[in-house]
Each structure stands twice: as structure tokens, then as C-alpha cells.
Amino acid sequence: MTKQNIFSILIFTFFIFTNSFAQKVGEKAPNFIGTNFEEQEIKLEDFKDKVVLIDFWASWCSPCRKEMPFLVELHEKFKDKNFEIIAINIDQKESKAKSFLKKLETKPSFPMIWDKDSKIPPKYELETMPTTYLIGKNGNIRFIHKGFKDSYKEEFLKELEVLLNEK
């Protein structure tokens, strides 16, 4: 085995184990079908031509709990402007998610998928919880937020304005 071959195999091995396959900005948002707590079907493709915010959350994730009231606020503010939020809950127990939602001052009025078997997160190859994707009207991922901090709120507003003003 030549030195060059060894080097190539090492590089290959390194990339196999370190390369991230997570969805990136500019790529088409993978379609998904899920059901809400009332077992009604929700599909991403039903929201074509809208700016869509996809949020992966769980009641056991502290920053997700922090983010939810902000998402409710955001939805109330922009829902009449061709904007929709799809929240994907990955709690294994429905009661845990519902108990958290019950405690919210304003209840979310946007579609909420209960993905108890976590079938959707692998399609997006999440790297952390929560992860929030802003999808443009053409169905492409335009902005990704990993985690949640108060400082993200301003960024969300700016990004939303950009996307909503696009044709």
C-alpha cells in the first residue's frame, strides 16, 4: 500500500465520520406528512406560496419551552401576511406536550404536528433542539436557527420581513 493510498483512505474515513448531512440554507425543504393531536393530517406542501416557519420542539427541552410563547406572538403578528408556523412536537407522551401547552398564556393557533416516533427530524438531520427553519415562498430553506436565545427575536423579525416582502 502506497503512502498516497493510505492518505486517501484516512481522508475518506475522516469525512465519513465527521461530515454533517444536515439541511442547509438554499436547499429545498424536505416535504413531510404528520398528524396533529386530533389526528388530522398536516403536509408541508399544503402551505405552498407561503412563508413557513418550521419549529422542532419538545416539552423536555428548556429552550423550546422558552421559544414557544415567542412563536405564538410571531404568529399573531404575521398570520394575515401569508405566513404560517408548523410546530413539530417530538414528545413521546402526548400528555407531556399538552400539559406544557395548557400552561401557555396564549394558546398556539398554528398547526402542530405530534411526531411521537420522530420520523420527521431525521429528514432535516437536526443538530440540536430546538431548530427553527424559515422557508421562503419558493419552498427553499432561507434561514436556520439552532437553539433559542432572546437575542434571536430581533433576527427572526428582520428575516421574516425580508421573506414576506419577496414575490
Partner: peptide, 11 residues
Amino acid sequence: VQPWERESLSD
């Protein structure tokens, strides 16, 4: 452990 598999770990 994928982020969506961490329910038990977060207990």
C-alpha cells in the same frame, strides 16, 4: 444520540 432521541437524557 440524536437530538430528537434525548428525552430520557433530559430527565
